[in-house]
Simulated assay, not measured.
Amino acid sequence: MDVSKAIDKAAGAEREVVGQYVRRGDKKPYPVNSSSEIEFNNPTSKGNITTPATSEAQRWDGWGTQIKPAIEPIILARKPLDGTVAANVLAHGVGGLNIDACRVGTDDDTSRPPGRDGGNATWDLSSRSEPSVSHTAGRFPANVLLDEHAAKEMDEQSGVQKSGGIHKGGGATSSWFTFNKSDVDYAHYPDSGGASRFFPVFKYQAKAPKRERPVIEREDGTKIQHVTVKPLALMEWLVSLIVPPGGVVLDPFAGSGTTLQAARNKNFHAIGIEQDADYIKLIEKRMKPAVTQGLPLWR
């Protein structure tokens, strides 16, 4: 909210009009005499550019009541457990996180000896034989997701780093494992790169692309569309993290149906709840291909 406009309105003052702008769709408005006016041959709205009319409004010109919502936190909550996580999984089939389905992809060898990483390996100290290590593709997913620009900035700040490892005949050089036998015959070499390699990285999008934002035109020419559509790839990652095989996704605020589509794409069933009749039309348009492709349906 523009504080100076609110002050003038409260004072009953008429703001001075110093120009006009035109706007089409969700594009930024430009002054009528701007070189960008050609972008608005068919404007859907016009408005006045004004300046403060009162001294109080002039004092607070340029002030507002909120800043741009440039980050969207993801809240992962879980109902209090009756016992342990294992007991809850056995009783209800939910409660765990599908780590392997959401690992951070890498071409490096991310195998680890037993210990903090929870890998399955055994050491025979008498024969000094190599351990049997389970190899899982990708790094453990983090609770922070990056876009490509944030990842680049992180790498510029961190520089190239090397992870510790067990070297053939060289003993332990790692912070996650300590082994004092310097002549262990086990080859595991550290990887290197920027710090962003430890985080899931998604394509930067100011908003979801058009192909993921269904639009319906009414008979009067006005359009139905949702204002906060989430990127599909992000929602696919989230449903993969928490939904067990054959599970059902419940979205109590379905909006345009992004979460429902993500569930369908990952072969989950989904139940969506939405009170806005217009948004239900958007969901139906988005989910219609499921009928012809034989994919899991939503309801």
Rank of each mutant, 00 (worst) to 15 (best):
M1L: 12
D2R: 13
S4Y: 04
A6N: 07
A11F: 08
G12P: 10
V17E: 07
R23V: 10
D26M: 12
D26P: 00
K27L: 13
P31W: 06
V32S: 06
N41Y: 03
T50A: 05
Q58H: 07
D61M: 06
K68S: 14
I74V: 15
A77Q: 13
L81N: 10
D82S: 12
V89T: 06
C102A: 13
D109W: 05
S111G: 05
G115Q: 08
S127K: 15
P131H: 06
P131F: 07
F140I: 14
L146H: 00
E148W: 02
H149F: 10
K152H: 09
D155F: 07
G159M: 08
Q161E: 11
G165F: 08
G165T: 14
W176N: 09
T178R: 11
F179G: 12
D183V: 04
P190C: 05
F199C: 01
K203I: 04
K207P: 00
K210Y: 00
R211P: 00
R211A: 10
L238I: 15
S240E: 12
L241A: 15
L241P: 01
P244S: 14
P252A: 05
Q261V: 08
Q261R: 15
A270Q: 01
I271Y: 06
G272T: 03
Q275T: 04
I280S: 02
